[in-house]
């Protein structure tokens, strides 16, 4: 039986990788994938503590997070298509119309 610390370490590692991806990439698709990685890290955390304490709240919450992540990707891809349509690129640093 693997101790819960190792699952926490795994989830922290995935979360930091996703954070690194968001900080370094400029493509919207990499943004979406990094957000997926971070949400998966949160899910691993919730499921690990659900197993640790013998309580199902973490698993049900993780299901909700999964559903919301799917919806988030759908809306994110809609936004990305509009970005590509209007700016001809999926580079987030080019959409500067609302900036001063």
């Amino acid at each position: 039986m693997v101790a819960v610390q190792f699952y926490l370490l795994l989830s922290a590692a995935i979360f930091c990788i996703g954070l690194f991806g968001i900080l370094t990439r400029r493509n919207v698709l990499f943004f979406l994938m990094s957000v997926e990685l971070m949400l998966n890290a949160a899910n691993i955390n919730l499921v690990a503590f659900s197993f640790q304490y013998g309580n199902l709240t973490g698993q049900v919450f993780s299901l909700f997070i999964t559903a919301l992540a799917a919806a988030e990707v759908a809306v994110g891809i809609g936004i990305m298509l509009v970005l590509y349509r209007n700016f001809g690129d999926v580079d987030v640093t080019k959409a500067t119309t609302l900036r001063w």
């Binding site: 693997v2 699952y7 698709l29 979406l32 994938m33 997926e36 998966n40 899910n43 499921v47 690990a48 659900s50 197993f51 698993q59 993780s62 299901l63 999964t66 559903a67 992540a69 799917a70 990707v73 759908a74 891809i77 990305m80 298509l81």
Partner: peptide, 26 residues
């Protein structure tokens, strides 16, 4: 391995079958 078999099935169905297909489409 954390005894969340239903969640594993949902992970494969929703993430790999839904989200990843959407991302591939994009």
């Amino acid at each position: 391995m954390l005894r969340a078999e239903f969640l594993a099935a949902m992970q494969v169905l929703v993430y790999v079958g839904g989200v990843l297909v959407l991302i591939t489409f994009a």
